[in-house]
Design a protein around this nucleic acid. Sequence first.
RNA 1: GGCCCAUUCGUCUAUCGGUUAGGACGUGAGAUUUUCAUUCUCAAAAGAGGAGUUCGAUUCUCCUAUGGGCUACCA
Length: 511
Amino acid sequence: MERKVRVRFAPSPTGPLHIGGVRTALYNYLFARKNGGDFILRIEDTDSQRFVPGAEAYINEALAWCGIRADEGVLEGGAFAPYRQSERREIYLQYALQLVNAGHAYYAFDTPEQLNEIRATYELEGGTFAYNYKVRGQLNNSLNLSAAEVTKRIERGDQWVIRFKMPEDEDIRMFDLIRGEVVVNSASLDDKVLYKSTDKLPTYHLANIVDDHLMEITHVIRGEEWLPSLPLHYKLYEAFGWSDSQPAFAHLPLLLKPSGAGKLSKRDGDKFGFPVFPLRWVSPETGEVSRGYREDGYFPEAFINMLALLGWNPGGDREIFSMDELITLFSLEHVGKSGSRFDPEKAKWFNAQYLRMKSDEELATLYRPVLEAKGIEASDEKVAKVCGLIKERAAFVSDFWPISAYFFATPEAYEEKAVAKFWKGDNPARLAELRDVIAGIGDFTKEAIDKTVHDWIAEKGYPMGQVMNTFRLAVVGASMGPGMADICEVIGKDETLRRLDRIGEVVPVKA
RNA sequence: GGCCCAUUCGUCUAUCGGUUAGGACGUGAGAUUUUCAUUCUCAAAAGAGGAGUUCGAUUCUCCUAUGGGCUACCA
């Protein structure tokens, strides 16, 4: 029987989710939606040492901002609850014990200190220590100790872990949806700890396999950093007798640091001049603040679009996709195999595209708070009109103010270069004439202004560039912005006249 | 060191044995424009190297190089 597709995103709350994590969540989400399946959000908080307060809330908020909604999870609930591993702790031990009883795992009494010592000794001799078939016969574990001794130690309260007994020499054949067949010989693997003594919790490996099985996960889509532990996971499914219902695996290529070496990590925070986190994050330990895409003014749709295309491509020249389109198009076959670095410039371009697609009214709503903070009052109609005139010149709403302030306030300063270039010769006198021409316009619309001014320039035979640029200098205060008629219509006749008068009062004409 | 994965313009990528190797970002030039921006046009820019397999390899195989991941009682 074909099982219903069920995927999970399983972050550990050891800090904020970075963009690589968001991308993994996104691909899982897209895959689930595409295949009519469920997307589960499971919190893997089995590392009590590295737990970071606020991280789980951050994950929820980040996914919500991105528009990635879980069908089941800590917040949503579900038939397989609880979805936080720390609340499932009783479950794991019995499974670990099941493996011990079946001979697939064993108790080990070696303390971390002892192991570190052995490790140091090996390294001193130029070797590397691995807890594996070669050495497990000489270490403190239930493989070597009598049953009575093992019981005695456990009852006495000695620290113990449960380790998986990796076969000595076996070719483990695995299949990855993105990479194809991968074969690893078990001799290169070690006896991983499945159940920890330090916090009485399972390690990732055990909890992951048990929960994926219990939650009926059909596809595990995760980062490539997990590929090396795939053989262990295969053996674990086998040892439990769950191979038949084992999920399919897809290991995603990593997101790399923009500057040279290594995969992107949470600790990269803010050091590249662009955010690596979806949302702003303030470290509870250090108070260090890391920027977020949301706070930097990115639209979630643009952020998601950009992220989706980092490592996946539907195979065409199109680059702008809505979430629904991504869902329709998504497939694991088109996920690339090699890691990618992402380009902040391109991210900016994506945002600019989405900014243009927004209606003037929508942008006005976003711009309004900025204006209010500057103490500026303006009608909805005016703000929307301004947004319409400037949106093709910006990538973020935060770019709006510097390029549109003159719509709302009379310029206080006049750009030096423009003054030097235009505020001289016949221009001031012509501007005075223009003032009267403007004053004579009855119906102060863009069309009328445009026609009247141009007719006047033609009639007088004035040099267009000189006149218009002086006009612009007076109204805008700088050499920038949309057409003069557009600007004048928005600021109105009175304000236009005021500005034409003012420049003469404020800026001395160069001899 | 060991094991594993990867390798097309600076960056993200298309190509599923036969193409002048395409697109996008960025860069440069030009055009448009009353300014700036936009827009448009054009340009420079890539199959890591070497062996095979094949009539034919960017595409398949192997070797080398390079990059990356893992090698914790972290995930």
